[in-house]
Design a protein around this nucleic acid. Structure first.
Lengths: 136, 136
DNA sequence: TTGTATGCAAAGCGTTTGCAGTGAT
DNA sequence: ATCACTGCAAACGCTTTGCATACAA
C-alpha cells in the first residue's frame, strides 16, 4: 500500500458510501463507475491490503460470502433480511455473553447475526425485492 | 433417501457420535472406518439429503466451512476456540434479541458465536493443539 | 430386475496467485 | 527510471454434478 491508485480510491469510496457491508462483486460494480476497466482481482487484492491496514473490516455472516465495511465503526452486529438477503447494521449488543461459555472457557469476542424481515420486506408491505444481493 | 445404505448409516453414525459439529472431511474420515472406500461426494450428497429430511442440521460459523450436527438438539449456540479451531456447543442463549433490531424490522431467528480459548487451550495450560481442524 | 445410491472425474463458484505490462512516485 | 500495482488468466479449495456401475429393494 505505498501508492495511491485510482482503483484503490474507487474501492474505498464504494465501501464508505454504501452504508452497509458489501460483497466484492458489489464493490467492483460500484468502483467501475469511477474506474471502468477494473478487474475483480484488483478488488480482492485491495480488500486484503485495506483490511490489514485497518481501514476496512471483513464482515462474515454464517453461510454468506465475506462482505466489507469501513473499520471506523463502533462495535455492532448485523441483520440479514431473509427476503431480500441484504445485510444491515444493528447498533445494539446484548452484552454479558462471556457468562454463557462453559466453565474453563474464556470468551474474548463474539458475533451475533439477526435474521428476519427488514422494513422494506416486512409483513404489510406488498413490495418484495429480488431474493439475492440487491445493492441499495 | 429411499434406500438404507452402509454409507448413509456410517455418515449418520459419525455425526451422532462426534458430540460437536463436524466438517465434511471429518465426517468422511470417521465414516471410512466403517466403509473404507467411501467417496467425499457421497458424504456431500447424504449431508444434503439428511439435512432436507431433518435428521441433521448445518452449522455455519462466520468464515468457516459448513459443519453438521444432529438435529435433535435444543436451541443452542457455538463456541470456537481461536487456538485449536474446534467448535463446541454452548447450551445458553442470551434471549431478548428481538429488541435489538431497528424499528420496522422483525427478528425471527438469530445466530451467536463466541470466540476465545477452550478449556484445553486456556491460559495456564502448556498444551497447545494444532491450529486447524483437530478432530476430537 | 429396477432404479436409487455410489465412485470417479469433471465442472462450478468464489478467491488467490503468477506473470508481463502499466503508471504513481 | 523504479517497482508497486494492475489486468488477465490459470490455479485453488470446497462443493456440486454427470455418468456408468453397484447394490438395496
Amino acid at each position: 500500500m505505498e501508492r495511491a491508485t485510482r482503483q484503490r480510491a474507487a474501492i474505498i469510496e464504494a465501501i464508505v458510501m454504501a452504508g452497509r457491508p458489501l460483497l466484492p462483486e458489489e464493490i467492483l460494480d460500484a468502483a467501475r463507475n469511477l474506474v471502468p476497466g477494473m478487474a475483480l482481482a484488483t478488488v480482492y487484492r485491495n480488500l486484503k491490503l485495506l483490511a490489514e491496514d485497518g481501514q476496512i473490516r471483513a464482515v462474515q455472516l454464517p453461510g454468506e460470502n465475506t462482505r466489507y465495511e469501513p473499520a471506523d465503526q463502533a462495535h455492532h452486529h448485523h441483520f440479514q433480511c431473509r427476503v431480500c438477503a441484504r445485510v444491515f447494521d444493528v447498533q445494539a449488543c446484548p452484552g454479558g455473553l462471556a457468562a454463557l461459555a462453559p466453565r474453563g472457557f474464556t470468551v474474548e469476542h463474539h458475533e451475533l447475526t439477526l435474521y428476519g424481515t427488514c422494513g422494506d420486506c416486512g409483513r404489510g408491505s406488498t413490495r418484495r425485492r429480488s431474493l439475492r444481493r440487491t445493492k441499495a
